[in-house]
Design a binder for these strands. Structure first.
Lengths: 220, 220
DNA sequence: TCGACTAATTGAACACGTTCATTTGTGCGC
DNA sequence: GCGCACAAATGAACGTGTTCAATTAGTCGA
């Protein structure tokens, strides 16, 4: 990712803004790159100077929302034990992503296509930052485990959170009520999860899943 | 789905065969509908008489593999208790889907697009039949629960199986070793799951997830 | 055998995402 | 102020999935 000159950055921003507003007004699928270019008052070809593919817009949106989540979660993180803080994070995440659910549904498909070109091999902004929120949710909680364990647990909670977000994207029940119920259930059984989380088998199992989903643990 | 005349059925089959063989030789993405039409010795437009979209081929493949799974699972189902039978079903499923993993990865994306047109509102063949295998795996197992409970549990195991298949599709570890480890872990803890499965909370939680993923329970 | 109705098939066209050779603009050393 | 290098921007073109009005083949009753 080479440095962008001010003018270029401004153009890129204008294109991105056009795209996102069109996605909101119509939908991801029915907005055309030609429409995006037109609204940004730019030629079609130029769009590709700043976005490798149409999918890239969804990625850019997700990055932006990840930033919003980071702020929202850090600002209002309750001074509780980690299970409560975790549930709060999950709820905050869905609240932030909520308005863009329809657009975001697209990204999940891409994740499976294995087109690694669009997904930089290094941990992208979103994953790194969102994950750090979950780490800190554990690390600075009341009665937090020691640092090494907190970091590990935070990573695993991040993956669980990812699973819930995915479930929410797939959830076809009206207003995604099924996801609400799922989280409510999870909240009820959080104490049990807290106990389970301290056992080696949990670490092994969930840790393994985490490795497979987001890659082997990396240093902060 | 109107009845197809013999001639039409033969043409449809020829097109499907061309498509699947091309997917195998090259890949789903890089095979062209024009290539498919050419190999089937048919005009491009005709393809759309039998397949609503390119994605439909993957769906047709999945239906075929579901049938294969049904046969393979029924023929070799071990005469054991349901947990062992469940693990066997999962392994069989992945074995059958295995050779077509790359093509199948496409379908998962489509599932999220919410293009319900391609996915008939009634339970499609695959879901109905595969689910019935899991139901029977419980129902006719040693020490099986009563019929109502077996049916419910079978449904839930089917959804768990779906989750594992999905995980396998996403799994980026070499040779999907992470999935192997996951199943191995699951096997180790199967007794625990068996106990958990008999509790109300499990039924409520997993049942709710099942509803959200595959829709409310339907009659066989 | 014919005609007429339907099923099967064609091929040209469209809109889309994407690519690329080309042109325009911008800042800088002299 | 002049060229020069490079960034920014263009627009025409390509191949793709998809649609559709038109054409051909098949079937069956009179």
């Amino acid at each position: 990712m080479p440095e962008l000159t001010p003018k270029a950055e401004e153009t890129r921003q204008r294109i991105l803004e056009s795209a996102l507003s069109l996605f909101e007004e119509q939908s991801f699928e029915s907005t055309t790159l030609r429409q995006i270019a037109a609204r940004a008052e730019v030629s079609l070809g130029l769009v590709y100077r700043y976005f490798a593919a149409k999918e890239s817009f969804v990625l850019a949106l997700y990055e932006r929302l990840s930033h919003d989540f980071e702020d929202a979660a850090r600002d209002h993180m309750p001074d509780e034990r980690w299970p409560e803080r975790f549930v709060f994070c999950v709820r905050t995440s869905l609240a932030v992503l909520g308005p863009h659910r329809n657009t975001l549904r697209m990204v999940t498909g891409f994740l499976l296509k294995g087109t690694e070109d669009l997904y930089p091999p290094e941990n992208p902004y979103s994953q790194l930052h969102v994950q750090s929120v979950f780490r800190e949710a554990v690390l600075y909680a009341r009665f937090a485990p020691d640092e090494a364990q907190s970091s590990q647990l935070g990573r695993q909670l991040y993956v669980i959170h990812l699973a819930i977000v995915f479930f929410w994207l797939v959830d076809r029940s009206p207003d995604q009520q099924a996801t609400d119920r799922l989280i409510a259930q999870m909240e009820r059984w959080m104490p049990m999860l807290a106990i389970a989380a301290s056992t080696p088998v949990f670490r092994e199992l969930v840790g393994g899943i985490a490795d497979a989903v987001i890659g082997p643990a990396a240093e902060l």
